[in-house]
Design a protein around this nucleic acid. Sequence first.
DNA 1: TCTAAATTTGTAATCATTACAAAAATAAAT
DNA 2: ATTTATTTTTGTAATGATTACAAATTTAGA
Lengths: 133, 133
Amino acid sequence: MNIAQHLSTHDIKPSYQRIKIYEYLYEKMNHPTVDVIYKNLVGEIPTLSKSTVYNTLKLFIDKGITSTLTIEDNEVRYDAAIDSHGHFKCTSCGAIFDIKYDFKDVAMNKLKGFEVKETQVHVKGKCNQCLTK
Amino acid sequence: MNIAQHLSTHDIKPSYQRIKIYEYLYEKMNHPTVDVIYKNLVGEIPTLSKSTVYNTLKLFIDKGITSTLTIEDNEVRYDAAIDSHGHFKCTSCGAIFDIKYDFKDVAMNKLKGFEVKETQVHVKGKCNQCLTK
DNA sequence: TCTAAATTTGTAATCATTACAAAAATAAAT
DNA sequence: ATTTATTTTTGTAATGATTACAAATTTAGA
Ligand SMILES: [Mn+2]
Ligand SMILES: [Mn+2]
Ligand SMILES: [Zn+2]
Ligand SMILES: [Zn+2]
């Protein structure tokens, strides 16, 4: 995947910071917070500002190449995956896993005549690894 | 429903503030924020403090008679309904509707061996009423 | 009544996010 | 190449919800 190309295609000028931020999201796929992104890139981009991270992510969302999840109520997380999928967060190790779900059985009875734009599914508990040790 | 009784049963001393706050949650069933609860009760309880609202809701959650939803990333909402159910928020009028969903089709494929403690389903869009006018 | 414990309250601290204007970088025009 | 305009980045201040904490008040017990 050519990241500069991908940004351009979506009407985003591929500046150095934007490329690095998207690259981080896309390659790690770790649902990071702004702070995590910042801390991981400031070594390579010493002049980086948190404002830039916020600005850039807002732009990515506007242009539709990034999504957000609010699985904890005090921090927004970001995801380069934009297809509809849910998330599981292990309360023990903190890892976040993607989960697939079938929307057909989710809420369809009550939502007749409603226009659905966005769905989030958040599950919390303990992951496989944490349970077996 | 006798609210004082209900609180006592769940190991919560039924003070005046606690009764009024639970009464608000239970009778309105409107998924309010702390601020909404405070503004609606301060007329009747002029000395009420927002701290009390926060403290009381935390206690209710600890004791298991209230649940939270984070359908917007900048505000927590509270719900006297504690059974597992999802929520639909109309982005036009702001109303929040309860929705039922079937967990059997939600994520079961990927979650083998995981221990699920809590699930949240959040849907956004436009409600029936807002669409037809 | 006197004393101890629980509850409520007000205020300050925290922390993620937003607002905003200056600085730096990039592109366009001359 | 130099100037000018536009875009992007940056730093700092403002905002707003939540938490921390200690004083004041209320409630319960001796
Ligand atoms: Mn994801
Ligand atoms: Mn509800
Ligand atoms: Zn784990
Ligand atoms: Zn509506």
